[in-house]
Amino acid sequence: MIENTSSIDRVAGAILIAGLLFVLTPLVFVVITATQSYEDFLRNNFSLIPGGHFLDNMREVWSRTDLPRQTLNSIIVGAIVAAGRVALAVTTSYAVVFFAGRGRGLVYALVVASIMLPLELMIITAYQVTANVALPLNVVANLGGWWGALFGGPLDLRWNLLDSYAGISIPLMAQGSCTMILVQFFRTIPPQLARAAIVDGVGPLRFLWDILLPLSKGPLTALGIYMFISAWIQYMWPLVAASSPARTMAVVGLTRLQEDADRIPDFPLQMAGAILVTLPPLILIALFQRRIVRGLTLSEK
């Protein structure tokens, strides 16, 4: 570095070691617990001495859940959510950052406000909307009975998305953090770029497609991976929106391993399960870490 910074480097090194210990301790504990048997656990409670039941626990998780299918479901939902959120974020942030005009402040405010309230607080009403997405159309059409007057009966469209990939994924897209991040990135793009494009006679859509998207490949990939993982670890909504085993996601499927309130949970088995569902996103992170960090620079330089 610039000057003699060995003392600062030593402090920084100590901070990193502390951080690593902090992050890794819980994960080590998970792995150790997963090696114990239920009987050990009932007798000794938690203990930091590894047992020899890791493979047995894995086998039991495998036989008691339907992980292959549930993992596939998680991948599908994760991919839809990631692609959907990134695509929605691109168009909206493009409109917010690169266009003049009234309303864009409002659009942006509507998007940002959605970050704060979790879906858990709207679970019943969100379910009702998903059970019939055409609900607002019906309401508008039947307001004051004009539809009935014109066509001789109230409008009653039904479009049920429950228990479908769309019904699980789309409500998970109704959250604006991805857009907010992308707006910040777009703002760092030099305006000269777009001005030059206008001089060359490039239209706004061509500019988006030919210039802006290639330029944003890094951030978009990083956001995509990040949103994929965010969808992967969702619990409440996928549990409520899916009824059939054919649509159950991996994190939800693991609840099968939990015991009822009256009983003592089989923690070793649950931790073994947690390892199995955590591995795919963890591998993704470990492999793409550099790309994620570089992509989320939020600055085009």
Partner: peptide
């Protein structure tokens, strides 16, 4: 019969309320 687990009594009831309101 198809028996559908809801993860807990509470979630089952929440879902039943929403489902009854949407005739599902």
């Amino acid at each position: 019969v198809s028996c559908v687990g809801q993860g807990s009594y509470e979630t089952g009831m929440q879902k039943a309320i929403a489902a009854y309101r949407s005739q599902q």
